[in-house]
Design a binder for these strands. Structure first.
Length: 364
DNA sequence: AATGTGGTCAACCGCTACAAC
DNA sequence: CGTTGTAGCGGTTGACCACAT
């Protein structure tokens, strides 16, 4: 037997709020506060018969709460997101995923719902647009190189009908030969490197101005001696966060307010679990990533860590080494997340790095 | 002018965490 | 310690609007 509904569904109004309802709710809360019980609030308003309307507020308590928090609360700002806010949202999304309430806590006067909508309707597309654009230009270059190479060898690896399969990705990459990993460790190193690559990519593609981060230069700046072949060492550079509580990523980022205490008190060490956590983090953008590459494994440049090289190469996968979306999503969040800030903070270009200079009212 | 399509955003739904009992 | 009720969160829906055909 399920729990009793929080309100009489047959007796509550749904849909858009009228100005009268808004006024009634606002007046009541400004005068009496929420009373710590949203569920009972509509009845209280009814009994008080406050302002303008003598009818009660036939709304579910949850609905009242949402309306107040998202629209009626004083000093709420709607729309008109600045480039600076874009950067903060993207940085945090990359860091902690779709934890809108935490992201909203870092953006004064913004609501989680607003940010969520903004991300889903605009920012995500903006980011994907950059992703595609750059991918296309990169593929264009590499295809030319491939064609040169093929011409010189006299035998193309790409069947003619493999070209222009996708409206988004007109220049299909050459299907890389399957990489055989001699051990799980090797796989992990590759996964770590590719994960970092993707984070760098994601971090550098949403700016509206067209000076897309120069991947090479930025990467060099962020990761001296960077080279994908240096796997483990570089990954540790990128993700290692000391387990000392005094140097938590939160401290480093001055995000000591408004963030779940669970984050701040977490221990941060790089181990198998944390790696999985980071992989899980990426489970928060399955659709974006699917569009970026999952539907066509040939396009998974930089995303191998999400599926495992094996899946990228369309081969059978050891379930212990590969995490599907359903699995990864369960890994998102929890006390691990604090380290994600530090991890990603170090992994994304400076322009999108989250620091107290980059958001209004940051260090409060 | 009518219809179709896609984008935006307010609101709802279902779930989890947490507190009170 | 289990049950119950509420707050809060994130995902999803659907109404509305603008633009294209």
């Amino acid at each position: 037997m399920g729990r009793a509904p929080c309100c009489d569904k047959a007796n509550v109004k749904k849909g858009p709020w009228s100005p009268e309802e808004d006024a009634k709710l606002k007046a009541y809360i400004e005068q009496h506060g929420t009373g710590g019980n949203w569920i009972a609030l509509p009845q209280k308003i009814d009994s008080k018969r406050v302002v303008f309307c003598t009818l009660g507020l036939k709304r579910c308590g949850k609905s009242c709460r949402l309306r107040w928090l998202n629209y009626l609360r004083p000093n709420i700002k709607h729309g008109g997101f600045s480039e600076e806010e874009d950067k903060i949202i993207c940085s945090l999304y990359i860091s902690i995923g779709s934890r809108w309430s935490i992201i909203a806590a870092q953006l004064p006067r913004r609501t989680d719902n607003d940010i969520k909508n903004y991300w889903n309707t605009r920012l995500k597309k903006k980011l994907l647009g950059k992703q595609r654009k750059e991918h296309q230009s990169r593929r264009g270059k590499s295809l030319k190189q491939d064609m040169k190479r093929s011409a010189s060898v006299g035998d193309s690896m790409v069947p003619a009908d493999n070209i222009n399969q996708s409206p988004y990705w007109p220049e299909l990459p050459v299907l890389a030969p399957p990489i055989q990993h001699s051990s799980t460790q090797e796989h992990r190193i590759d996964s770590q490197a590719s994960m970092r690559r993707l984070l760098i990519k994601l971090g550098g593609r949403f700016s509206d101005d067209d000076h897309v981060i120069n991947e090479g230069a930025t990467t060099l700046h962020q990761f001296p001696n960077d080279s994908y072949s240096t796997g483990q060492h570089l990954y540790e550079q990128a993700v290692y966060v000391p387990s000392s509580s005094s140097s938590s990523p939160m401290d480093a980022l001055n995000l000591n307010n408004n963030i779940d205490a669970q984050f701040v008190n977490s221990q941060y060490t790089i181990n198998e679990a944390n790696l999985h956590m980071l992989q899980g983090l990426s489970g928060t953008f399955p659709s974006e990533l699917q569009e970026m590459g999952y539907s066509n494994p040939q396009r998974l440049d930089g995303m191998e860590f999400l599926y495992g090289e094996d899946m990228v190469n369309n081969r059978a996968v050891n379930p212990c080494e590969s995490i599907g979306w359903a699995d990864t999503s369960s890994l998102v969040g929890g006390p691990h997340c604090a380290s994600e800030y530090g991890v990603i903070q170090q992994g994304i270009p400076q322009e999108y790095a989250f620091n107290e200079m980059s958001y209004p009212g940051g260090a409060q």
